[in-house]
């Protein structure tokens, strides 16, 4: 290739200044937000603070492992898994139909491109459901739990409902996005030959999305396990209640034992997800 005339007259990057400005502005925003949240990196290397932290860390060892505590821990672990599973399943039962209704590809009325007698109706239903999903997920499960503990009393039921409410909003939104991003041709072909909305979903959309649905749902289940621990702090039962008591009693060994259980649960969730996806693929 000759080193003569270049195809462009100028090597000046036309997007350069904009990119530089964007980078500087984002950096400034991050620094400002850290300042707002009183995050000071110097505090981390302050010797006095380090000593207190190390002292606390030393208290974590060894993890408590006497038979009585282990048995109690096992029982509460099982309860936590049960809360998370029940909550996630309930959330799915609400999220899946909502997502199927929100998804535009599955719209029978839009088929053929001619406006129906009431063109605003399907749109209104879709927007209404979208808003409902936003409402469900915009209130954190902790707030729902605090409300529900007053309604249904202390115990796991409040935790299950709180997770079900918030997570149905999250699952519904992400399910709908997964459906929208799939290839619409198989589904539309089925609708063109008179299949119903749910049939189009089951035979056209679901086979393409099952992988992503499984992996996202299991990930949410994992989040629900963590979440149910937090809910335990406000009296919704499970490992959270246990860890709250241990922290209050400065029982570092118990806290570390409980943390090990959390890690184990997340590893388990990860393995379950991989297993399910492999079985499906």
């Amino acid at each position: 290739m000759s080193r003569g005339a270049l195809p462009v007259t100028s090597l000046h990057d036309p997007q350069g200044p904009g990119r530089l400005l964007g980078a500087v502005l984002s950096l400034a925003a991050v620094v400002w937000m850290m300042h707002l949240t009183e995050f000071d990196p110097a505090a981390l290397v302050d010797p006095a603070n380090q000593r207190t932290a190390l002292h606390f860390a030393a208290g974590l060892f060894p993890p408590t492992h006497d038979a009585g505590f282990l048995r109690m821990m096992l029982q509460e672990t099982w309860r936590t898994v049960a809360i998370a599973t029940a909550g996630t399943v309930l959330a799915m039962l609400l999220a899946l139909p909502a997502a199927v209704l929100v998804t535009r590809v599955l719209s029978l009325s839009a088929l053929g491109g001619r406006a129906t007698r009431k063109p605003w109706l399907p749109r209104a239903v879709r927007q209404g459901l979208r808003l409902l999903l936003v409402l469900l997920r915009s209130v954190p499960e902790l707030v729902w739990a605090l409300l529900l503990v007053r309604a249904v009393g202390l115990g796991p039921a409040a935790g299950v409902l709180a997770i079900a409410i918030t997570y149905s909003g999250m699952l519904g939104k992400v399910y709908a996005e997964i459906f929208e991003s799939a290839d619409s041709a198989p589904t539309v072909a089925l609708l063109h030959q008179g299949a119903g909305r749910v049939q189009g979903f089951l035979y056209g959309l679901l086979p393409q999305c099952s992988d992503e649905l499984i992996s996202y749902t299991v990930y949410r289940w994992e989040c629900a396990i963590r979440s149910s621990v937090v809910l335990g702090f406000v009296g919704a039962g499970g490992l959270g209640q246990l860890i709250e008591q241990s922290i209050r009693m400065f029982a570092g060994g118990e806290v570390s034992a409980l943390i090990l259980v959390f890690i184990l649960l997340v590893v388990l969730a990860d393995a379950t997800s991989a297993l399910l996806r492999r079985a499906w693929a």
Partner: peptide, 10 residues
């Protein structure tokens, strides 16, 4: 349709 409208994993 010209392109077979079949979901790949079905």
């Amino acid at each position: 349709p010209q392109a077979p409208p079949l979901p790949p994993r079905q």
